[in-house]
């Protein structure tokens, strides 16, 4: 049951990443065509455009969502690769714990950074 659940979430996370990376590519590389995400003149990475996106709750949510799905997708993939090296049961348990803690810590740091960026942009 566990692998069935993890695999389903893995696939779901992959689908979300596909959409969000598409959005990222649109924002960062199709700015000549789609200006709605970059209202200020200049490059998408210019301060004015970064602040404009940073104020948006939509972008805050997508940043956190992308972070969570990418962490889960990546760590699950890494776990599968390592499990194929046929480690023993204690090593598997340790890896599960390590990836869970590492994922949660990185997610917490990333979410805090996204929130901090949001509040800075709002006050700018």
């Amino acid at each position: 049951m566990r692998d069935q659940r993890l695999w389903t979430w893995h696939i779901g996370a992959g689908a979300v990443i596909l959409v969000l990376l598409g959005l990222h590519m649109t924002v960062m590389h199709l700015d000549a065509i789609v200006r709605v995400f970059n209202p200020a003149p200049g490059e998408p990475v210019d301060w004015a455009n970064v602040v404009a996106r940073g104020k948006s709750v939509f972008f805050l949510v997508t940043y956190v969502l992308l972070l969570g799905t990418a962490l889960f997708h990546g760590f699950y993939g890494l776990r599968n690769i390592l499990f194929e090296l046929n480690p023993g049961a204690p090593a598997k348990k340790a890896m599960n714990g390590l990836f869970l803690v590492a994922g949660l810590v990185l997610f917490a740091i990333g979410t805090w950074a996204a929130w901090a960026g949001f509040t800075v942009a709002r006050s700018a």
Binding site: M1, Q4, N80, F83
Partner: peptide, 8 residues
């Protein structure tokens, strides 16, 4: 649905 399944 466990480790013996098609996931790998």
């Amino acid at each position: 649905s466990g480790e013996r399944g098609p996931w790998r």
